[in-house]
Design a protein around this nucleic acid. Structure first.
Length: 226
DNA sequence: GACCAGGCACATC
DNA sequence: GATGTGCATGGT
């Protein structure tokens, strides 16, 4: 279990205080990241699907295309043809796959909630998460991104950078899975939307700048924790 | 011209 | 249940 590993490594300081220490160090180094860079809840949800394994700059082009075509609404995405949709989101990569995923998402939205985002807000977080995971093309990270950044639910988003940084610091095993990492944060930090929002974004920031496959630890804000 | 990016589903063992 | 592979564009 991840938290036991953290306890061992941190000499009984407590998992929560270690994770809080990471956060404070990152926040003072980088400041607020102002995520999610999107205009409205639906756009954030679409962005969460489009950014799967893809650089955000490419997603921005795809979103601009969808906006330009006037289809960046539940009804717009429902009505546009698969072929046209794929063409519009081409810059985001995996465009055929992601066109199907967007269709599956709005399909769910209309089937269960009459195409209205408000419908989602009525559900409790756990059943909403299960519903999202049942949609083809929405996995744990995308579901949690939608929950946190679009619907403001206090769930922690894990991504490749988060794991890389934690592994680098010996806090989790290379073999740790998504739910284990997610639980590490959610079991040891207060369920605060603002905190989870910034923390995930800060992991991406420090990961991009210092913890790619070949880490650059000199000058990293987390260097003192190594 | 490699290598990588804010994953996921599916096949195979 | 774990491990491997296809999906694709655009920036460094």
């Amino acid at each position: 279990m991840a938290s036991q590993r953290v306890e061992r490594r941190c000499g009984g300081k407590g998992v929560g205080s270690v994770l809080t220490g990471f956060y404070e160090r990152l926040y003072s180094a980088f400041g607020p990241q102002n995520w999610w860079p999107g205009d409205g809840r639906f756009e954030v949800m679409v962005g969460a699907i489009l950014t799967q394994n893809t650089a955000w700059t490419n997603v921005e082009k795809a979103i601009a295309n969808l906006k330009g075509a006037g289809v960046l609404t539940p009804l717009g995405l429902k009505r546009v043809s698969m072929e046209r949709l794929a063409e519009l989101i081409r810059p985001a990569g995996y465009f055929n796959i992601k066109a199907k995923r967007l269709k599956a998402f709005v399909g769910y939205l209309f089937r269960e909630h009459k195409g209205r985002i408000d419908g989602l807000s009525k559900k409790d977080t756990e059943s909403l998460r299960r519903a999202l995971l049942d949609i083809h093309g929405i996995g744990p990270e995308t579901a949690d991104s939608i929950l946190l950044y679009a619907l403001e639910r206090p769930v922690f988003v894990i991504d490749a950078y988060t794991k890389r940084v934690l592994v680098r610091h010996g806090l989790v095993s290379e073999r740790a899975g998504y739910d284990e990492l997610r639980g590490l944060f959610m079991d040891n930090l207060p369920p605060d939307v603002g905190l989870f929002n910034e923390y995930h974004a800060l992991f991406v920031r420090v990961g991009k700048e210092y913890c790619k496959t070949k880490p650059i630890c000199k000058g990293c804000p987390l260097e003192e924790f190594l």
